[in-house]
Nucleic acid binder design. Structure first.
Length: 886
RNA sequence: AGGCGCGUAGCUCAGCUGGUUAGAGCACCACGUUGACAUCGUGGGGGUCAGCGGUUCAAAUCCGCUCGUGCCUACCA
């Protein structure tokens, strides 16, 4: 040997410096193109392509926290595993940078509002923020070690994505799935746009007082038995003048006899300047859905307070009285104190009422219609982007019909492999509860334009042709006269598409679906080349709260466009929580900057924390857990350094190895753990995989095997050259396997150690550990050590008995306050003849690990006996007299 | 109001296709440092597995009910 062990230990840096190592590998991997997708590779040609679809984050977020780092890491563990498993991996990063989230962000950052800035200026600002945000993200993703092929990055404002969204639109037009309807729709008065059902969330429970309001019976319709008034209860008194009917249950005796009864709508007789006119009157209608027990049994139907109103308005063909404008202002010129008051702005000095409601209550009170107010707890429906209570407006919108697809979409959900399985429930519930077709129109600026012009003569829509995409009708005139009437007078559709219209296409964008029918051989930049082979993708990874949006919409799109699933599997991740268990969020400010954690503890340590969450479960951020990751790195560094003390300068195979029981036992444990990790990864259970590898590494490898073999490398060892060779073989293969098992989670340190320690020993070494073969092969056989049945070998080797024997000596040492380094004169064993025979093969390793000179079998008194766990044997130790210090 | 998840050591969590004495990490206590590692090692204390009832030879694990907690969906006149 050219180097003594001590020299080698000195040659290695004593400490692992992640600040040096991690940036170095980020750069080197990039130079080596380790993560680039290669459609021509052997794996790709063998049909082993694996594409992954991860969320394109809103660049407007620009506030990545450790929760984001967590979920992207979790997806990436699986990606690295698949790559080592021999798949040609396609892993792009996307950015969602159009639509309301970006607009809201820009509005808040620059304190501007739609309508007070030109469309073009607004879009400029959005683009700027988009570019800045994407750069921030990319830096973090790179420093976190995400093995993205950055050439394949997409963003939802790029022409490529716009083209996909527009082609999707046209394809759905062609398939008869799109309709333009003037319908009541969900509406956000703050954002001044329509919304889809998925954009609405339930607000917190709060006091929304119930107002009892008197509706006088129209004298012209009153009969001898009719009451003087109908009394309704409402949480929305500001909508009283939009009332179009009062409803009661058909069997309600109080009203049932009076089918022709009409009521006067309060306040509708008022005119400005104190003038009076006649009341608007509304009919009494009968509807099964009215609960006779609720209040007086009369329900106010107005246009429109909620979906119930819409249903009754449709069914009973009621008139329409709209009194709220698109900006949420009351349109009641006859009631000046109410007119112009806003429904989405809190009234000054009122904790409960908005401006409009306060003014309406005052008016009703003043004119004697308000009979009482009582507290009432309920929750409002809010726009999830801005938390404004949602209203209902009537406007022409583009809808994708989905309500008739519940059954096939449920079937798609059952066809998909869910990890974890129970998350399918969320999807099913959402689909079963769909109540609206998908409204894809948004009255906003910054989004994908509809490829549509309307004819001013006949009002019919004219669609762009697919080969004209992408197109912005606001910038480009319709290339032809109206196809319906021949008029040349056309106007563009001013609305833009729902942002989900684009992000539901991510598997399509990655595959460049819109280019599939291009002429072959067409020159295109790499990110625009058609890739049908990656559709459907292997897996979608996402968090559970967007099952109803991103997952649902993507499944629907794939069903409609390609009559297939968009991916084979879906892996659902949980949330990153703060120390108290609350979801990390920008708004709450309870988040930790991932950059700081990476700097302080390393990206590997942060990833290790992320690997602690079992699949689908939330994970608290505890700095202690990241520290645990750092400790694992240190341990890996030191143990590999230790192995290299005895491997450096060694040429394998020059001596025929004769493995001891310990060698055979640890080899079986290595193989067993490798198989466990493999099985876990196959089911996306990255946390189980890490636990299997970590427990092998720490408990079996470091705490025991390395201790057991130390004696073999000492001067005058009792072990033969063949046994020393076996220890070396085991050290090499064991270290190599442990590094590979941990490589998906700890990409940096495993690469560094592979390059420093292992690479030189391999015959045909891969350039990087991340393209090395996973230690378990296709046939689910561990390649290392060639063990056919690790479990059997493990039992036969007596590994657990050996650990118990070693442990008993350690217990004895502790009890007698004898340090682990001090040699023992003898180990005494109290055992039956059978037991003694059983452990015979373990004795050399046991004594070596115990630093004991000899074994004495007896049960002599006067010794401190200790049980050997799991056996009926006992152990005692005798220490050599301490040499007097000179 | 329905559905789903969770409730296990002081803390964070595994285990939960039923089967030796219920585990890990952190924290705590004691001991131990010239041969990989004090960013450490060894040993130890600590749990009536939320509660109640049932199935079973056997329940943290299966079933029912209750309580607490989180989320999803709904209601929200």
């Amino acid at each position: 040997m050219s180097e003594t062990p001590q020299n080698l230990a000195d040659a290695w840096p004593k400490n692992y410096d992640h600040l040096d190592v991690e940036p170095r590998w980020v750069k080197t991997w990039n130079d080596w193109k380790i993560h680039e997708y290669n459609a021509e590779s052997a794996a790709a040609k063998a049909g082993k392509t694996f594409a992954i679809d991860t969320p394109p984050p809103y660049v407007s977020a620009a506030h990545l926290h450790t929760g984001h780092a967590m979920s992207y890491s979790q997806a990436e563990f699986v990606i690295r595993y698949k790559r080592m498993r021999g798949h040609e991996v396609f892993y792009p990063m996307g950015f969602d940078d159009n639509g309301l989230p970006t607009e809201r962000y820009v509005e808040q950052k620059y304190k501007i509002q739609k309508g007070k800035i030109t469309r073009q200026e607004f879009i400029e600002l959005c683009l700027k923020e988009t570019r800045d945000g994407a750069a921030v993200y990319e830096n973090l993703w790179r420093s976190l070690g995400l093995s993205v092929d950055w050439r394949m990055t997409y963003s939802t404002i790029q022409p490529r994505a716009v083209k996909h969204a527009q082609q999707s639109f046209l394809d759905l037009v062609k398939k008869g799935r799109l309709e333009r309807r003037e319908d009541p729709i969900l509406w956000c008065p703050l954002c001044a746009t329509s919304l889809a059902q998925a954009d609405v969330e339930a607000g917190d429970e709060q006091n929304r007082p119930m107002h009892a309001v008197r509706f006088p019976v129209d004298p012209a319709t009153a009969g001898p038995t009719s009451p003087a008034d109908g009394v309704i209860e409402t949480t929305r008194p500001e909508l009283v003048t939009a009332c179009v009917a009062l409803a009661c249950h058909p069997t309600d005796k109080r009203y049932g006899a009076l089918k022709a009864l009409r009521f006067q709508v309060p306040l509708t007789d008022l005119r400005p300047e104190g003038a009076k006119s006649h009341f608007r009157t509304v009919p009494l209608i009968f509807d099964e859905s009215v609960d006779p027990e609720f209040g007086s049994g009369l329900m106010m139907v107005c246009t429109f307070g909620d979906t119930e109103d819409i249903a009754k308005w449709r069914e009973h063909q009621l008139e329409t009285v709209l009194i709220i404008d698109p900006q949420g202002r009351m349109m009641t010129p006859d009631l000046p104190t109410l007119h112009g008051q806003r429904v989405h702005v809190q009234a000054k000095g009122s904790g409960i009422y908005n401006e409009a409601r306060l003014a309406a209550v005052e008016l009703l009170k003043e004119h004697g219609y308000l009979l009482g107010i009582k507290d009432n707890v309920s929750r409002a429906s809010l726009h999830e982007r801005c938390s404004t209570p949602v209203e209902i407006q009537v406007a022409p919108q583009w809808f994708i019909r989905v309500l008739d697809l519940k059954e096939p979409l449920l079937a798609r959900g059952r066809e998909l492999n869910w990890y974890p399985e129970f998350m399918r429930e969320r999807y099913e519930q959402w689909v079963e509860n769909l109540r609206w077709d998908w409204n894809i129109s948004r009255q906003r600026f910054y989004g994908v334009p509809f490829p549509v012009w309307f004819c001013n003569a006949c009002q019919e829509p004219n669609f762009a042709h697919i080969d004209e995409l992408p197109v912005d009708p606001l910038m480009a005139p319709c290339p032809r006269p109206c196809t319906h009437c021949g008029s040349a007078d056309l106007r563009p559709e001013p609305d833009v598409m729902d942002t989900w219209m684009t992000s539901s296409l991510t598997p399509f964008i990655n595959a460049n679906w819109a280019m599939w029918n291009d002429k072959p051989g067409l020159e295109r930049p790499i990110q625009d080349q058609p890739r049908p082979v990656i559709y459907p993708a292997g897996v979608r990874v996402q968090a559970h709260e967007i099952i109803r949006t991103w997952l649902f919409y993507t499944v629907a799109k794939s069903h409609l466009h390609t009559d297939s699933l968009p991916w084979k599997d879906v892996m659902i991740s949980g949330w990153g929580l703060d120390k108290q268990g609350k979801k990390m969020s920008k708004r709450l400010g309870n988040f930790v900057e991932p950059g700081e954690i990476i700097h302080k503890y390393s990206a590997d340590a942060l990833r290790y924390w992320a690997a602690g969450a079992s699949l689908g479960n939330d994970l608290r951020f505890l700095e202690e857990d990241v520290k645990g990751g750092k400790r694992l790195l240190t341990k890996l560094w030191n143990s590999t350094r230790f192995a290299m003390m005895y491997l450096s300068g060694w040429t394998p195979g020059q001596v025929k190895e004769t493995p001891t029981a310990a060698d055979i036992g640890i080899r079986a444990r290595v193989v067993e753990a490798a198989l466990q990790a493999t099985e876990a990864f196959e089911g996306y259970e990255y946390s189980k995989a890490v636990r299997a590898a970590e427990s092998l590494f720490w408990a079996d490898w470091c705490d025991n095997y390395l201790e057991i073999i130390k004696d073999r490398f000492k001067e005058g060892t009792r072990f033969s050259p063949g046994e020393v060779e076996a220890a070396r073989q085991t050290l090499l293969e064991g270290t190599w396997t442990i590094l590979r098992l941990l490589a998906p989670v700890l990409p940096f340190i495993t690469e560094e150690l592979y390059q420093l320690a292992i690479k030189g020993f391999l015959r045909d070494p891969p350039q990087s550990i991340h393209i090395a073969a996973w230690p378990v092969n296709e046939a689910h056989q561990a390649d290392v050590f060639g063990l056919a049945n690790p479990q059997l070998t493990l039992v036969a080797s007596g590994w657990s008995t050996l650990l118990a024997l070693v442990g008993a000596v350690r217990t004895a040492r502790t009890a007698q306050k004898i340090g682990g380094g001090r040699p023992l004169l003898a180990v005494h064993l109290d055992a039956s003849v059978d037991d003694r025979a059983q452990i015979e093969p373990l004795i050399p390793d046991w004594l070596a690990a115990s630093r004991a000179e000899e074994l004495l079998v007896d049960n002599r008194g006067g010794l401190d006996w200790h049980d050997v766990a799991g056996t009926s044997m006992k152990v005692a130790i005798v220490v050599a007299p301490q040499e007097p210090t000179a």
